[in-house]
Design a binder for these strands. Structure first.
Lengths: 236, 236
DNA sequence: GTCTATAGACGGATAGAC
DNA sequence: GTCTATCCGTCTATAGAC
């Protein structure tokens, strides 16, 4: 076919390893997934992992980076768009939320190419005890978080930044659980009539916006207007 | 001292193992914590774990049960009280939330006797990939969940049960992250001026109530009154 | 680039003396 | 109840032939 005897599965092997690792990490967790499980499922040789990635830690890192780079780029692009189209320079909090959580939920709806699997994995990894993983995720998120927090500060003038920080934290928690736990967690097993992730977006957005704009607990002097959006939570 | 040469550390050894296990499970995760790490920290012999608990799985189970039994009993007692004191048989949603999340946050404030450690551990364990752990937690929660969901259904008449289910899911997610992630997660590292868990309660309650009572995304025909509490979120 | 074989460390669990 | 010593399995990573 080609010039010289080609390497049988050059870049293909890498992808198969990454795909298998992603699925198994989701199913069993980072720690409990061995390289042997990964290479078996990927139908490649055990040594291929260390050849292509050097170590399990590097493999983990690449599994996350592969998807996170796109996801966070989409988020920043969405925020750019929202800020460009803001009427009178005033960005609505709901628009900021949609720019951040929308792309994540969109990815979580992709059951065809593993996007859903990845988002479930990501959600539970935020609280992974492994220090290396947490540090890596924090670095990967630093820029996006900075941008979105800044946008929220501006869109909610008069609200203490610390309060916004907390609520953003709460919102990430609610979202992560909603994605990671829908069919993984057994607490609500059999209770959801409808686990379709595409119907999650409007539900979640409504909840998040309600929480974000709730009356402040300790700062009664802040006028309600600064917490308002000008419109109610709306379906997508 | 006593009659015959007594067993040197009868029940004490059990407690030391449980305490050490709790702390180490929190710090490193269930999987990454070896029995050797536990027995070293507890200053007991390696074989003591299998003597007292039979297996690592049983040890894990007892670590959780020890605290969960009390926590869930407190929750049910708080709900009983709320239902007894309800004016006109109508229980406010905010009271139901306080009965469920109040005892959890109270325990999370106990830094003296490991309550905080346990709640951080519990928060991340909800999404643990280990099927055994998830199944066990689900069973431990079944009764409480049933009772609280029923109370919420009654306190929010006209709101579809499925919607309440989802919002309860969101609320548990927000709470778990708030507790588990405050100093474990690095995403917001250095950003919180005040990580004092005792100040978390009013912040979180306000957020949760705002989310629970947010306008419904898909069911615009429900009157606002059914989502209202009669009072705003209030500080603790 | 792919493979086999194995090194070297660590895991949970147990047998049996005390 | 406590301890030492050990079995046996699995893990990551690597060396070296092809």
């Amino acid at each position: 076919m080609s010039t010289t005897a080609p390497a049988r599965h050059g870049p293909e092997t890498r992808h198969r390893i990454l795909d298998a690792a992603e699925a198994l990490f989701m199913e069993h967790g980072l720690d409990a997934t061995s390289l042997r499980m990964i290479t078996t499922q990927a139908a490649v040789n055990l040594a291929a992992v260390n050849y292509h990635f050097g170590s399990k830690e590097n493999l983990i890192q690449e599994v996350f980076q592969r998807r996170l780079v796109d996801l966070n780029r989409n988020r920043l692009a969405a925020l750019d768009k929202v800020e460009r189209e803001a009427t009178g320079g005033r960005v609505k909090p709901s628009k900021v939320l949609e720019a951040f959580f929308g792309p994540a939920l969109e990815l979580a709806c992709d059951t065809e190419h593993g996007g859903r699997t990845f988002m479930q994995l990501l959600g539970r990894t935020y609280t992974d005890p492994n220090a290396f993983v947490r540090k890596f995720l924090a670095e990967e998120y630093a820029e996006v978080l900075e941008r979105f927090l800044g946008a929220l500060y501006q869109s909610l003038p008069g609200v203490p930044h610390e309060e916004i920080l907390w609520r953003f934290h709460f919102m990430m928690g609610a979202t992560s659980y909603a994605i990671a736990g829908t069919d993984a967690l057994q607490l609500f097993a059999g209770k959801f009539d409808d686990a379709d992730p595409s119907r999650l977006l409007p539900r979640l957005m409504s909840f998040l916006l309600g929480g974000l704009r709730a009356p402040l607990a300790d700062f009664g002097e802040v006028p309600d207007a600064s917490l308002s959006d000008g419109e109610g939570a709306k379906a997508a």
